[in-house]
């Protein structure tokens, strides 16, 4: 009945999707509650919400382009996710600059690594930065792109597996003319479950606040990604069982 090669491919692709999501979050400046009070650099929400937000944006795009060529779907979803995060960070900067009245800055480094601007003097004493300066902004765009790739990959692979197609259709163009709504609903819920599982590994690893790629916590990337890969592989078994052909 079920092709073992197909199942193993699905498992590995789901695990790769989980790793991409986790890696993406390390690039996004996550500020958590301190950022909501403008006392830390980053987007003013937790890792969980960022991961699920970026993943679900990718999921929406992938569901819209359900029958297109798989790499095209994934890259489009990544771009849509990057646009989502770009708008979020831009609005946060607008609020911080024009509402709070603090210039985007961080205390981690003396100079912005991208623009070479002198940012440290603009940090208010007692805080570790405000808003999203250029270096972390670019990191956030790239991170959201990666997370969108992962979200779309996870969802598309699950959807195509649930529809019961072969390997060629799974990685290429899907020969469907109308979407299988039942399969989309089932794989959307299981995909959100997978995002939450990966999101928590990343969140425990980051513990609250990270300032994109200039943060020392970036060293935790290899073991976090290994943990994400293992956990996604593990729960991939449940996902495969849950989403066998509807």
């Amino acid at each position: 009945m079920m092709d073992v090669n197909l199942m193993v491919t699905v498992l590995i692709l789901i695990a790769v999707g989980g790793v991409l999501i986790a890696l993406g979050v390390f690039f996004i400046p996550v500020g958590g509650a301190p950022a909501a009070m403008s006392t830390a650099t980053g987007v003013a929400t937790g890792c969980e919400m960022i991961v699920v937000g970026a993943g679900v944006t990718g999921l929406f795009m992938a569901a819209t382009l359900y029958n297109q060529f798989l790499p095209l779907v994934i890259v489009t979803a990544g771009v849509s996710s990057a646009i989502m995060m770009g708008v979020t960070m831009l609005v946060l900067n607008l609020i911080v600059v024009y509402g709070v009245g603090a210039p985007p800055s961080f205390a981690r480094k003396e100079y912005d690594p991208v623009t070479k601007e002198h940012v440290k003097p603009y940090v208010t004493p007692g805080t570790v930065g405000h808003g999203i300066p250029t270096a972390t902004y670019l990191g956030g765009l790239f991170g959201a792109f990666l997370a969108g790739l992962g979200g779309a990959l996870t969802f598309s692979v699950m959807y195509r597996f649930t529809c019961g197609v072969g390997l060629a259709e799974m990685l290429g163009v899907l020969a469907q003319t109308s979407p299988n709504v039942a399969a989309i609903a089932l794989s959307a819920i299981t995909a959100v479950g997978a995002y939450l599982i990966n999101a928590n590994i990343t969140a425990y690893s980051i513990r609250g606040v990270i300032e994109s790629w200039i943060d020392p916590k970036f060293e935790a990337v290899p073991r976090t990604l290994a943990a994400c890969f293992s956990a996604s592989l593990l729960f991939g078994i449940l996902i495969v069982l849950a989403s066998m052909t509807v």
């Binding site: 299981t190 479950g193 599982i197 513990r207």
Partner: peptide
């Protein structure tokens, strides 16, 4: 744990929903 209590609830539901779908199915 430094990530907020809701993250634990979300984690439990993420794992729980996969198992629940498998459970209701078989």
């Amino acid at each position: 744990i430094g990530t907020g209590v809701p993250s634990i609830g979300n984690l439990s539901i993420g794992m729980g929903v996969l198992a629940a779908i498998v459970g209701l199915r078989f």
